[in-house]
Design a binder for these strands. Sequence first.
DNA 1: TATGAGGGGGAGGAGGGCCTCACCCTTTCG
DNA 2: CGAAAGGGTGAGGCCCTCCTCCCCCTCATA
Lengths: 208, 208
Amino acid sequence: MPDRTPITVVFGRFEDLVSRGLRVLIDEDPNIHLVVADVEWDQLPAVLDINKPHVAIVNFGSLGSAIDVNRLHVQFPSTRLVVLASRPSQAECNQMLAFGATACLSKETQARDILNAIHLASRGLHVLPRTKAELAPFDTGPDLLTPREADVLELLQQGRSNAEIAATLHVGIETVRTHARSVFRKLGVKTRRELASLTGSGSSGRTL
Amino acid sequence: MPDRTPITVVFGRFEDLVSRGLRVLIDEDPNIHLVVADVEWDQLPAVLDINKPHVAIVNFGSLGSAIDVNRLHVQFPSTRLVVLASRPSQAECNQMLAFGATACLSKETQARDILNAIHLASRGLHVLPRTKAELAPFDTGPDLLTPREADVLELLQQGRSNAEIAATLHVGIETVRTHARSVFRKLGVKTRRELASLTGSGSSGRTL
DNA sequence: TATGAGGGGGAGGAGGGCCTCACCCTTTCG
DNA sequence: CGAAAGGGTGAGGCCCTCCTCCCCCTCATA
């Protein structure tokens, strides 16, 4: 029993990839009608004033201040505001809702959930991302090496001994061992031989 | 003078929005042919082995370890690896390239630049994001309030005086004044009256 | 004039990440 | 056996953010 009158949606300026994704995603739902897309932040008030959409999806990253959402909310109380953020913390989402947003979603939210959230938000129901779940498949990414660990790794890849590395970096051998341990742990290897057997041709070409 | 033989591309598992964006983006370029999309990380080796694509676009966030890229690189040296990350730092990109990636791009990269990067990467040229430029339009988002500042804000919105807030939070009035200053600065207002005039109906409905 | 609200600066402590180094142990290999 | 490489733990220092509080000042207003 979906509504006969489609939900009108406007969304602001997003990264090109996300913008294209939002377009095709909204097109998949016949009950949601995209009115205007890629609206620059400073033109959002004019667009909302003209189109009076049910839902406006705004980019958290393009917000200058958290209260900008509130200004939109008090100026256009009939338009539900859905904030789309990259990796919103619970605190961020709570603040968005406190400032008048109706929903706060992560860009990692699954497609169907985004559409459902638009439907719910159009009726005024608040939607928040799961506290820490749905970012499981797209975890925080690999453990990044610290600058010092990267230095040690580079010398390790050259086959240097711990003592040589210590002399090169002007630190104690114990420091090298500590960094090397972190490198091994973060890269999931156990010996410098594993390191050497990999990295066959690392950064040979110039960056250009 | 584009090539007659299209560039074959495979890309891994991305957020639904980004995945849809990548599909339509690649469709826009007649010289790039999408072979397989949304490949789970553990199935990438098999897919690369079967299809031998010119370029594989992998999700930085789905990497378990930085050296996973290297394993792919040494196993399939003829496939150029393009790492797509959310907000890669220069260090992250350098490490990706050091481990055999050909390009490291931000998901905020503009559409045409992504396509150009795929073309360049397919020929082995390294592509890195501008050091700090292209994230200008999508800045770091608004200044987030700290937990304590959020507490003060809530009481400020209720019209409490500094002394009342201090008593409620069991801190000194000077502490309240400090937090209030931060709240005003981060929200871009100058007085508590501005705060009260806004936030007409903040979080009235329940979160559901 | 006295009070409260505002801006500005700074100090001290807690907590976290990173760098440095130290001690303990086992394993590997010439 | 001895040396190097590995794992484990923990210390101290540095730097950053946040919280707490202190001082200085101006301005509006009862």
